[in-house]
C-alpha cells in the first residue's frame, strides 16, 4: 500500500528532456547551412523570334566590352585589364570633363557586352561585376550629392529617382564561338 502511494506521487522524471533536446539541437546545428545564397541579379531580355531591329547609336555613347576566349578584354577597341574596367566605365558614363569621345549623358550611355562561348565563366562574371560595380558607385555618389544620404539607405522611390538619372543598360550580344568549350 505504502509503495503504491509513493508511486502515485512520483512525477515523470524530466531530467532526460535536456538530453533529448540536446540531441535534436546538435542534429540541426550540423545540418544547418545558413542561407548564403547571394549573387548578381540580372534581368535577361525577353526572347523574340523576329529578327532584331538594328538600332543606331552614336559611337560615342556605346561602351563596348568584348571578352575573348583567352579571357582578354577589349574595351572600345583597346586592351584593358579587369582591374581598370570599373574606373574607366565610371568615367565613360559620367563624363565629368565633357570629353567628346565619351557618353553625351548618363541616360544615353549604353554598355554593350559580348563574350565568346569559350570565355571562362569566372572571367565573365568578374567583368559583369565590375560593370555593375561602376553603376553602384555612381548611384551611391549621386544619392550622396542629391539627398546627402547613401544610396542603400534611401527609400525605394528615391532609389528609383537615382536609377532613372543613371540608368543601367547592359546589352548582351549573342556570343561568338571562336574558342574551344570545355
Amino acid at each position: 500500500m505504502a509503495k503504491s502511494k509513493n508511486r502515485m506521487k512520483n512525477e515523470i522524471n524530466a531530467s532526460s528532456m535536456a538530453d533529448i533536446a540536446f540531441l535534436l539541437l546538435i542534429f540541426f546545428l550540423v545540418t544547418t547551412t545558413i542561407a548564403e545564397d547571394k549573387g548578381i541579379l540580372v534581368k535577361l531580355p525577353p526572347w523574340s523570334e523576329e529578327p532584331l531591329v538594328e538600332l543606331k547609336f552614336k559611337p560615342r555613347n556605346v561602351y563596348s566590352v568584348l571578352v575573348n576566349a583567352e579571357n582578354q578584354l577589349l574595351v572600345r577597341g583597346q586592351q584593358m585589364k579587369i582591374a581598370e574596367l570599373r574606373d574607366n566605365t565610371k568615367e565613360f558614363i559620367a563624363n565629368p570633363t565633357r570629353r567628346e569621345d565619351l557618353s553625351e549623358s548618363p541616360t544615353r550611355a549604353i554598355i554593350s557586352l559580348k563574350n565568346d562561348r569559350g570565355t571562362n565563366y569566372g572571367t565573365y562574371l568578374e567583368v559583369y561585376n565590375e560593370l555593375q560595380g561602376a553603376y553602384n558607385e555612381l548611384w551611391e555618389e549621386e544619392a550622396l550629392r542629391k539627398y546627402n544620404v547613401g544610396y542603400s539607405k534611401r527609400t525605394n522611390v528615391k532609389k528609383r529617382a537615382v536609377r532613372n538619372a543613371l540608368p543601367l543598360v547592359i546589352s548582351e550580344a549573342e556570343p561568338t564561338s571562336y574558342g574551344t568549350e570545355n
Binding site: D116, N120, Y121, P175
Partner: peptide, 10 residues
Amino acid sequence: DGKITMGIVQ
C-alpha cells in the same frame, strides 16, 4: 562553377 566556359551557360 567558375572554371567552365560560357558556352553551356549561354
